[in-house]
Design a protein around this nucleic acid. Structure first.
Lengths: 340, 340
DNA sequence: CTGAAAGCGCTTACAG
DNA sequence: CTGAAAGCGCTTACAG
């Protein structure tokens, strides 16, 4: 069943059928009704390959998701998907490993499929510097800043990671913690971890709290398992630690479990704060004190910016910051009795 | 840059370039080297739309994921993706809501994209009965049984939900629990919840433990939030409950948090078991006693069965069961002091 | 408003 | 082994 069959059955030419299907204005009501009758009767769907082969304006948007198990991205992705569906876009999702080169993947995808636009959930700036110049369609990075890059077809939406980290570390400092360890991420690549760590260090410095990177910082991937192991490593180095800042909630959950397994309780023995505000962080025991990224807004703005770039209504690239919120949970103990 | 450009630059015809690209046997080594030189130099990627428009054998496989936030499916999907990628298949993933009609969606997708095969992660048998007859390509359902359906192009891979439920409820019974509540799912549709509940009831009956559906069973969607609320409802009805079987781990995590919020501790006051064995279940505090579905195997077998159906090497549809494992956590208390 | 025709970028029998 | 040509199922100027 193809457009020719519909043409034959409805008594019109393929051109007219195509016009009806694409709701062109140059069709009579009669032709429209006649054709749609046949289309509905046979549940006809035009072949997407042929359609996008011909069309100059495809309606497909690709989303590159960096990290397969990231609940924050899963959450943003779902909302993004819903939003783009509503706007009539076809969405293609590609999942990449945390370390894979998303720009090269996008490049290959662009050549094979010629999408209207690309969304990157997470992004490694180094890769963008190397290869993004070859990407011609509008793109938006969600959760990382591309402001320092010179590309006019590249925008970004993100949380102010530095400020948010500073805010959550502030919760620890207000509770009189001064022996703070930071766990998670990878500073050699991936600016997000670096920005979060810097925010934490900056806040410490303001409070005149010393922070020795080589002792008090421990990198790891964003997973419970790795958070678990990293906690053990860092506590071996600095057993006097009274509080931990995990750069992601999944890491924090692993940390919490590790502390329990070595007989330390949260927050009585050690306080803990996370980052992201994923659902699990508010259901675990104790409830995690963390900073919530506004996934709804990140998704909405990401989609809106991309579509406006595609439609040419926005002038060049933008970089938008979305507000964050500190969620007070049950994982921070106030060390000063006076405050209680 | 298209195949014509490559032909012009390499000095061969488009036919030959196409043959090189598709590694046909009828090409000289010289032509191959010449053409590939140009292809590599310009990083040429053939247009996927044109290619699959022409090809009778597409290399795309569609995956319908039922429920956007399901960590079990996320886990299976990741492995499935990896496996299919290795086999050179293009994978398209569609996320549907828990209640959406996946068969109608697949039908539309089939007409527009003509995939080689379709994987359903989760599936509502009612929808299959209504519309699956219109689907012509090989399909496999993962985590639900389609054995009772008469379609030769439909296979399935699943855990024996009834047996697994019986096994996990057995853990409660061995610990001398007899006042058990079951939480989760929706019996009016979705056979999985029903099979799990039935397994639980069967095991109770064997042990001569009464089970009153209208009192001791409480439905809810598979989410922490809904598990949380469902626990409150069921405990209001049967406050004497000593143990809870949550039909999914995410529900169990919500239940655990709700119990904490009403001042009950797990397992001292109430014991709890789950189903699925997702990562969080082994990091939460206390660690959840649950039954683990073998996601690696479900993904591997699902992919293998689908591919063998596509290649015509398997005869008709199959229904495979994958083994499960009981994970002993810290959420079940033995009520009899004698056993300790 | 409608039809006939060209063409999107490929693949694949068909000759040679 | 290679080239010329037909055709996959659509869309869209071009006439009328």
């Amino acid at each position: 069943m193809n457009i020719k069959d519909i043409a034959r059955i409805s008594g019109y030419s393929v051109g007219t059928v195509s016009r009806v299907l694409n709701s062109s204005s140059n069709v009579s009501q009669k032709a429209h009704d006649q054709v749609m009758g046949v289309v509905d009767k046979y549940h006809f769907e035009p072949n997407a390959n042929a359609r996008s082969l011909k069309r100059t304006d495809t309606h497909s948007i690709a989303v590159m998701v960096k990290g397969r198990y990231n609940p924050l991205f899963a959450n943003i992705l779902e909302k993004l998907h819903t939003y783009l569906d509503m706007r009539g876009e076809d969405v293609y999702v590609a999942y990449l490993d945390e370390d894979e080169n998303e720009v090269q993947f996008a490049l290959r995808y662009q050549k094979a499929h010629n999408p209207r636009g690309i969304v990157f959930l997470g992004g490694e700036l180094e890769y963008f510097k190397q290869d993004f110049c070859q990407i011609v369609c509008p793109c938006v990075v969600i959760t990382n800043s591309t402001q320092t890059l010179p590309f006019t077809n590249l925008s970004c939406v993100l949380t102010n990671d530095g400020q948010a980290s500073s805010d959550i570390v502030d919760v620890l400092i207000q509770a009189h913690h001064s022996k703070i360890a930071v766990i998670g991420g990878n500073l050699s690549q991936g600016q997000i971890s670096l920005r979060r760590l810097s925010g934490a260090i900056r806040r410490c410095a303001q409070a005149k709290i010393p922070f020795d990177m080589s002792l008090q910082y421990e990198p790891c991937h964003f997973s419970m398992r790795e958070g678990y192991d990293a906690l053990l490593r860092v506590l071996k180095r600095v057993p006097q630690t009274t509080a931990i800042f995990a750069l992601g909630d999944v890491i924090a959950i692993g940390v919490m479990r590790a502390l329990r397994d070595i007989g330390k309780s949260v927050p009585q023995d050690i306080s803990l704060v996370g980052f992201d505000g994923i659902e699990s962080s508010q259901f675990c025991i104790p409830r995690l004190t963390t900073v919530r990224q506004d996934t709804t807004r990140l998704a909405e703005r990401g989609a809106a910016i991309l579509l406006s770039m595609i439609e040419g209504t926005s002038r060049g690239s933008v970089c938008e910051i979305v507000d964050h919120t500190v969620l007070k949970g049950e994982t921070v103990k106030n060390l000063s009795e006076l405050d209680n």
